[in-house]
């Protein structure tokens, strides 16, 4: 790794009241990296991701994008402006999809480009249709989210995030709410994005994905990064006792 990281958590601590969820976590993400964050529940991985998504402000430390701070504990005007400027460069896919139920699939995809980028409607629709084809849901453009399966909803949510042409995509346990047989279709889309060179930060329990698609695996436990290794190395030779114990659970399955 060399050069300025594309996205960086710089010694981020996060407290909710007296509950400390993250303790001085530092994590650089390089361009085209697919960083998979794994770890037991309650380890702080989702909170870290939400800090990157600017949904939570760090209690200490900073989030830095291409050398520019975009989130600090006490952001000044400069940081706030920087955050606003890069807001839609950071896309996020949620565990529970969070599609807007009162809008059709197509409207879910065109809403932000038209509102935020002031994109003309026909252009937004053309882009949306292209993305729906990409996630294999072109025929669902006029359906409402409630009519779709979980896997289809999540693919729409990915397409919605892509509609803003983000430079980095964050995935928060994107397949955890899905039945096993529906996970594959979502993971396939994620894998395709990784192969296309999208910079991705993936909080996941899908060890197969982390192993085969991820360029780096980060293991978190109790609010700290315990171990970090490129791609499959983490799974083949975990260095710490905690990581070994964590991985054992999956072997037993």
């Amino acid at each position: 790794m060399s050069g300025t990281p594309f996205l960086l958590a710089d010694s981020v601590t996060k407290r909710f009241g007296t509950n400390q969820v993250l303790t001085r976590v530092s994590l650089p993400v390089m361009e085209r990296d697919v960083v998979c964050i794994v770890g037991p529940s309650g380890s702080g991985k989702t909170t870290l991701l939400r800090c990157f998504a600017l949904l939570e402000a760090p209690s200490e430390g900073r989030i830095v994008m291409q050398g520019v701070p975009i989130a600090t504990a006490d952001p000044d005007r400069q940081v706030k402006n920087a955050a606003r400027a890069v807001r839609s460069d950071i896309g996020m896919v949620f565990q529970h999809f969070n599609l807007w139920p009162h809008m059709s699939v197509l409207e879910n995809l065109t809403e932000a480009p038209m509102l935020v980028k002031k994109m003309p409607k026909d252009e937004a629709v053309a882009i949306a249709e292209g993305l729906l084809k990409k996630v294999d849901l072109a025929d669902k453009r006029d359906a409402y989210p409630a009519r779709l399966s979980g896997g289809q909803q999540q693919r729409v949510a990915i397409a919605r995030a892509l509609a803003m042409s983000p430079k980095v995509l964050l995935f928060d346990e994107a397949t955890s709410a899905l039945d096993p047989e529906l996970r594959r279709e979502v993971l396939l889309v994620m894998r395709q994005l990784a192969q296309e060179g999208m910079t991705m930060l993936v909080v996941t329990h899908e060890m197969g994905f982390a192993r085969h698609v991820g360029t780096r695996t980060v293991f978190m436990d109790r609010g700290e990064i315990v171990e970090e290794a490129p791609g499959a190395a983490f799974f083949d030779a975990p260095k710490t006792e905690r990581a070994k114990r964590f991985l054992q659970q999956f072997e037993e399955e």
Partner: peptide, 21 residues
Amino acid sequence: PKGHREAAQVLGLTPFQAFRR
């Protein structure tokens, strides 16, 4: 659900836009 607003926020909608739309 709060998540609907967060989805809007992440996509760049302002709080007012998210509330209205």
